[in-house]
């Protein structure tokens, strides 16, 4: 795994923009970052649009904490990081779907559970870093803040396939999910399986959180879920346009962020990605501020 400051041996953009692009295409770890990153971002943007629409941002926050604990639990147990990450996120997402979340969920309960989850995460972190297998002390930081330039070929392929699957699933359930999100009562009267959609959707959020943890880290994935969706909701009131816009903004943020991090190796990619997404959100707020209809 690479350090926080980005991958070692990044070449500068010496050959001008075109030379830089050719250089990017020739380096495998950059290719993985751009392709897997785009698919993960598209999934986060699409899922995030519904997360914001359904006021489940706090749930996304919860899953980001779970992602950290799950990944480190797997490392501490000597298993593959991906198993713990996806396993924990999906299980907790389904458990939350069973318990019911939403605007009326008790925030002290959710907060207490998160804080304890993170406490457990630090326990696993200590177990892992003090065990002979985990001589490398940076893995905890990597899980928290992401290592998109450190994706291996296998991880990149797995994440790309899973993220593409999430995108496809959102496209398939998009129409009924939108209906159920906006007016659950009318939707269930029209024989739409609202409960099932809730569960499936939270499962998808869990999968997305696990995938996004690889890209931007457990602590920052909330930004990738919330910022593009918030911007898209500001820019258009039409639901499907908003959904695609949200996915597009997420992909644009990740590519712009990766290019920035590549051009300035001192900046960690997670920061440049989040900074781009936040900048786009701010621009969207500024554009729609002076009374334009949303």
């Amino acid at each position: 795994m690479t350090s926080l400051a980005g991958a070692p041996g990044l070449a500068s953009l010496a050959g001008g923009p075109l030379g830089g692009l050719a250089n990017i295409a020739s380096q495998p770890f950059l290719r993985y970052a751009f392709i897997a990153g785009a698919l993960i971002a598209a999934a986060s943007g699409l899922v995030g649009y519904f997360v914001v629409l359904r006021s489940q941002v706090f749930t996304g926050d919860a899953l980001s904490h779970v992602a950290f604990t799950g990944a480190l639990a797997a490392l501490a147990a000597g298993a593959d990081l991906l198993v713990g990450l996806y396993g924990a996120c999906v299980l907790v997402a389904l458990a939350m779907a069973a318990l019911g979340t939403g605007e009326h969920a008790d925030d002290t309960v959710i907060g207490s559970v998160f804080a304890w989850m993170l406490g457990l995460g630090t326990l696993f972190l200590t177990i892992y870093t003090t065990s002979p297998a985990g001589s490398e002390g940076t893995s905890g930081v990597n899980v928290l803040f992401g290592t998109i330039f450190g994706l291996s070929a296998g991880q990149a392929v797995a994440d790309s396939v899973i993220a593409a699957g999430v995108c496809a699933a959102i496209v398939v359930i998009g129409r009924p999910l939108l209906f159920a999100s906006i007016d659950a009562a009318v939707a269930s009267a029209r024989r739409i399986p609202v409960r099932l959609l809730d569960v499936v959707f939270l499962g998808l959020v869990g999968v997305t959180a696990a995938a996004a943890t690889q890209a931007v880290g457990a602590l920052l994935l909330l930004g990738l879920l919330a910022a593009p969706a918030g911007a898209a909701q500001r820019l258009t009131a039409r639901p499907f346009a908003g959904m695609w816009l949200s996915g597009g903004i997420a992909v644009a943020s990740i590519w712009a962020g990766l290019l920035l991090a590549y051009a300035a190796p001192a900046l960690p990619p997670s920061f440049t990605i989040l900074a781009t997404a936040t900048g786009i959100y701010l621009a969207a707020i500024a554009l729609t501020q002076n009374g334009r209809p949303r």
């Binding site: 920052l220 909330l222 930004g223 918030g230």
Partner: peptide
């Protein structure tokens, strides 16, 4: 309120970034 929670989420993630 839903757009406000998007703002809070973004602020948190950006602060951590």
């Amino acid at each position: 309120r839903s757009s406000e929670s998007a703002i809070i989420g973004t602020v948190q993630a950006f602060a951590l970034a």
